[in-house]
Design a protein around this nucleic acid. Structure first.
Lengths: 352, 352
DNA sequence: TCTGCATCTGACAACGCTGTCATTATTCCA
DNA sequence: TGGAATAATGACAGCGTTGTCAGATGCAGA
């Protein structure tokens, strides 16, 4: 509350409206509206007057009135799987929130628990009840055809993070999982490892395939023979990492390094290895993916691959907002690089 | 809308308005409004007609119009510290989201990075720009006097989770940290431990003091002498847990069990113990607090204390919504119980 | 049956903005 | 320099709801 308010008897400060700005700038409300919405056909000198008045009064357009009057809602939805390990979603959330704030949009959340028989109904209710302009779909939600179709039918633009299969002319963003996987595999090979175990992730995630391909490419590039038994399926869960590791370590000649397709599974690998009394990294090198909080909190801390998820989500949400605004596509960078974070869970292969 | 739609007369289904309902029920829009808002002075027979029409048309009031017209916004804000370890916030988020959905409110997020010199300005902007009716403040944000004062000045009701010091007549909810800490300490004593190390949390959290008090009470109840050097300060971080553990294990006669005030610090304890070649739980029992994802992902999995945060946040948000609605206070349960989750990081004291 | 009061109901003006369309100012070219 | 084309601006009607206040209705008691 300002001094002025107090002088006026401490009325609860009523927010200034478009009329106040128009009056102060000496123009019509429509012109103010034009300036606020960055429309064309406003003389530069007029614009300046209006902007000055806006700043002077600290005017913010009333969202409810905009919504009621126009056909836009200034709301973006984020539909995500609500997992136990939340760090991916947290990052997406932070990035999307940042872009929304910058763009004057509001972010609404729909956490989904999978599997969900009422998936489509839930999404439909969310979208129509919350009156969304657009939707951000992180993996793996973005790969649900039924959701894509629903949003297309409702004519609601969406943008996807790391989609399995980018659609023509769609908004999406990804990081180079394949290359990252190649890099981390090469890193292990450089340390002298030849027996390289690999634990795949949940096939529902596109990253699962990409990471596996990077592994294969690295083997090939180094002329290392591919052994099918060195590759195990997992579901990105701690437990699945454990049992996959069990299988790998039970092999006649077990690998000297294991690449798990995410940190949770890598934690499972370490867990299982310790149960067997193996030393890490002396007896077994382990790497994960994603650099989740657990990676730096287990013993030994995990060598892993970090994706710039926050930045990716922010960029993608920004692109979506641009599209909603009808701005020209500024063709921002849509591919981000991952990089290997080296910690103590990996080491050179010891010849015994 | 496509040309085809127009040709077919398939207008994009416009949502029914209060006028449509009024017409179908044969009453005025004001009466419909009364029914929708559960106001008094509507004849039962009239109400039934209106309700039937509402259901028939599947009418939902337009939030923007309500907001524009009335003085309520149907929006609740959640202001939280945006930490690395997100599981607490995740749970709060899930609970608040659930209550908001049930109550027809929208939840808006304000993540805060601490320390933040512009804290108050950020909060003020959030609150006024987003036009909030009420705010949920999880720990430790709820204990910032400046935020409390701001909200009080702006006349915006707030509700706090686990406040250090409940204010008279405020909405808050907590779980019995002191008792939980007593229980887990007693659990260790029952296993034969006498030398009980304790790592305090960040003093900014009220839980820190409560947990310490429970520890003290358990010592007293079992006539175990209190040793000041067995108590170390921490900040709830993995690193602080490590260094506190270092100090404890460097003691002439180190404790046989360590109680860390959260899981992250307990992870630090385990990390440090392993670096020294100690076996857990044979050489050292470790317990944490909060049952975060890491608790079940480290080796060995952590005995810890689980708080029903989701339920607490849901209940509290529900209470806040009730208050905003002007409903009578139904005096729902405001105190929740924690319980010990026993895993492999604790065991009986081995006499050597 | 009528009066007076409590109970219901409805007409209509906000709320603050954007879309439409009319009007006015400016620019450009013959 | 005039006239057409174009750019800039403004008047005003909604958008769907709630608040206000006036008016209608119902009911008890005389």
């Amino acid at each position: 509350m300002t001094d002025q308010d107090q002088a006026l008897g401490r009325q609860k400060a009523k927010a200034p409206t478009i009329f106040d700005v128009a009056k102060q700038a000496g123009v019509s409300i429509k012109t103010v509206s034009r300036v606020v919405n960055a429309e064309i056909n406003v003389r530069e000198s007029t614009r300046e007057k209006v902007v000055a008045a806006i700043n002077d009064l600290n005017y913010r357009p009333n969202t409810a009135a905009r919504v009621l009057s126009g056909k836009r809602f200034y709301v973006i939805g984020l539909i995500y799987e609500n997992p136990n390990e939340f760090s991916y979603v947290q990052k997406v959330l932070n990035g999307a929130l940042k872009a929304c704030e910058a763009g004057g949009y509001t972010l609404l959340l729909l956490p989904l628990t999978l599997p969900n028989p009422d998936l489509i109904q839930d999404v439909r209710r969310f979208v129509s009840q919350s009156r969304l302009d657009g939707v951000v779909l992180p993996a793996p939600i973005g790969d649900f055809i039924s959701i894509q179709r629903l949003l297309t039918d409702l004519d609601i633009p969406f943008a996807r993070i790391s989609p399995r299969m980018p659609l023509a002319d769609e908004l999406s963003i990804h990081c180079n999982d394949e290359q990252a996987s190649f890099d981390v595999t090469q890193f292990l090979i450089d340390q002298g490892h030849q027996g390289l175990g690999f634990i795949k992730g949940d096939p529902i995630h596109a990253a699962t395939a990409h990471r596996f391909e990077g592994y294969l490419r690295a083997l090939k590039a180094n002329s290392i023979e591919y052994h099918g038994e060195y590759v195990q399926d997992g579901q990105f869960s701690f437990e699945s990492g454990r049992s996959a590791t069990r299988a790998l370590l039970d092999l006649r000649s077990p690998p000297s390094a294991i690449i798990a397709s995410n940190d949770d599974m890598a934690a499972g690998t370490i867990f299982e290895a310790r149960e067997r009394g193996l030393r890490i990294p002396e007896d077994l090198s382990v790497v994960g993916f994603d650099d989740t909080p657990i990676a730096s909190r287990i013993w030994p801390p995990l060598t892993t691959v970090r994706q710039p998820i926050v930045e990716m989500a922010e960029a993608l949400t920004g692109l979506l907002i641009q599209k909603l605004r009808g701005d020209p596509d500024d063709s921002a960078e849509r591919s981000f690089a991952c990089h290997v974070v080296t910690r103590a869970s990996t080491g050179p292969r010891l010849i015994n």
